[in-house]
Design a protein around this nucleic acid. Structure first.
Lengths: 337, 337
DNA sequence: CTGAAAGCGCTTACAG
DNA sequence: CTGAAAGCGCTTACAG
């Protein structure tokens, strides 16, 4: 089936190609009746403008890129990313932008993907996740003048706008909630410490614990994988003075931690309370269902997409704060036995 | 930073644009020394050909599309898709094809996305998942003459090649394994019954059970979500003659089923054995870790991508059978108490 | 082996 | 309000 071009529409509507272009793009330059006739013909013969031709003449690709830097096996179990993507798409589809996805293994590879995409004019902008200290991606994007939005911060990202959530407030809320239940020995199992938001959470955990005068609070470092989360939990629960509650930096580690507690014969929540960052179906599936720090992840993605589209349009974009995570209490938290 | 064009390379190398094009694409028409000089200059100034210009003149987009049709909340917890995507990308990256992703809610919306992508010349081909009976997507793709590969089958998909795995053999293996452990009352919790591979598994389950002379085998219908998987499990375990083993059509439902068993005070595997289709980290995270029907999902994705690239190149592509799933025994299966 | 030129399908100033 | 034309950055027959 031959795809119709703008010339086909023009011929059938009895106008020039320029008129068709104006009509389709809502530009002035054609009368209302002509515009309507052109639109009717376009619909009738099933015309969509070639993205390649459009990209070439307007120097824009009508696509944005996402190159999450994680092993595929982690991505797959972390519902966070799919939530983010569905939020992006809500905004992108409304403007017929496409989403180009490539999973990468290292920040260096991620940069290579950006360079290639940019060189090939495949995308008009990118969304960065997992902001690190002295993040090597930032100077590259600035040099390429590739529009971008960073999820994370606050940090120094030059002219690149950031979207963050108040992790400090959320972590404080979690610690206070557990303290109110009567817990005095609370531990944290953290994600990759090289990520800025991990650091913020760990600082907030220590500060909130100190403010409440809790004893023996400890942070066990892990990396967001179930494997490491389970190991960290085993370490914590094997210590002489084991915690009565643990806060996990993501859902996957929390589920792994729950399994370790069960394996060690501890009852949840009677012997151990569990709180997980990032609610997902996973947290409701297990027994007992997990108390979580929940936030609107698709909403977060949609907001990031709106910021990026503004940046692509050349508008000034301010840093923004998305909605914070709050406690959703389920069966995994209770007063200590 | 201004992006260099082919003209910049030509000027610097002292040749025509045509020569640069031949050199970059490995075509004859330039001497080896000239070719080398051109390649050096291109690398030096960081040139990548504009994908838009290339797409326009060659009438190919250098991209393939994937429009999985599921609610985002299911996609997010089902590790299957990310595994598939990572497999695709392995093959696509090698040929600098991009992956364009859009999550859709219904088959009708999926078709609309294909039509738009095709009209906009955004993609050169698509990969279909979740083949159904009398699938409405098939005639549309044939009419558009859009290269495609179907995951699933065997079924009548006209000229569109299929890639399937031997679900019948895998299901038979699972039933035999449970029977060998001593189970006589085995149940299945199935996925969406409108999908062809679900039907194949359910038929195989009934046939294998009958062949072994098992009594009271029953299939409870669900839809791949944890919610429905949990409900189906509750129904099965509440019946007078409850099964001693359940086979789940995916990992998410199996984890939900495990939680229901625990909630009802049944010990796994002593009171109930569990087998899950599609191994994922999820299955290893829970306690006890789940026995699964495992297969090489990224490998499956890579094979599909190779088939699709061949179809895009205009070569004839035969139907193929990917590697089948086999039992990986973990802690959730044992002889019945 | 190389250069000049047409063409892919749009958008957008520029004349009428 | 409309038409003819240039241009986006490549690829590819066509002459030399």
């Amino acid at each position: 089936m031959k795809r119709p071009t703008i010339a086909d529409v023009a011929r059938r509507a009895g106008v020039s190609k320029g008129a068709v272009s104006y009509a389709l793009n809502g530009q002035p330059g054609v009368s209302d009746t002509t515009r309507q006739r052109i639109l009717d013909v376009a619909r009738e013969i099933g015309f969509s403008p070639s993205n390649a031709a459009r990209a070439l003449s307007r120097a824009s690709a009508n696509a944005v890129g996402l190159a999450p830097c994680r092993p595929a096996k982690i991505l797959g179990v972390e519902p966070w990313f799919m939530g983010l993507i569905s939020g992006f798409e809500l905004e992108l589809a409304a403007r017929s932008y496409a989403l180009t996805l490539q999973v990468v293994a290292t920040p260096e590879e991620e940069i290579e993907v950006y360079r290639r995409w940019w060189g090939e004019r495949r995308i008009d902008g990118v969304i960065l996740t997992d902001l690190r200290e002295n993040d090597i991606r930032i100077p590259v994007l600035q040099q390429l003048e590739l529009p971008a939005v960073v999820l994370g911060g606050p940090a120094d990202t030059g002219t690149i706008p950031q979207l963050w959530s108040d992790d400090t407030g959320s972590m404080t809320e979690a610690v206070r909630y557990l303290a109110a239940l009567g817990h005095r020995r609370i531990a944290q199992v953290s994600g990759l410490t090289s990520l800025l938001h991990t650091q913020a959470r760990t600082r907030a955990f220590a500060a909130a614990s100190a403010a409440l005068g809790l004893d023996g609070t400890v942070t066990a470092q892990a990396d967001y994988t179930g494997e490491e989360g389970g190991r960290a939990t085993r370490r914590l629960l094997s210590s002489g003075n084991r915690p009565t509650a643990i806060i996990y930096d993501n859902d996957v580690m929390a589920v792994a931690g729950l399994a370790v507690a069960q394996e060690m014969g501890l009852a949840v929540p009677a012997d151990l309370s569990i709180v997980a960052w990032d609610d997902s179906l996973l947290c409701s599936l297990v027994h007992p269902p997990l108390t979580t720090l929940s936030r609107d992840i698709p909403g977060y993605g949609a907001q990031a997409a709106r910021q990026l589209l503004k940046a692509i349009d050349g508008e000034r974009v301010d840093n923004a704060e998305g909605s914070a995570a709050h406690i959703t209490a389920r069966g995994s938290t209770a007063p200590p036995r």
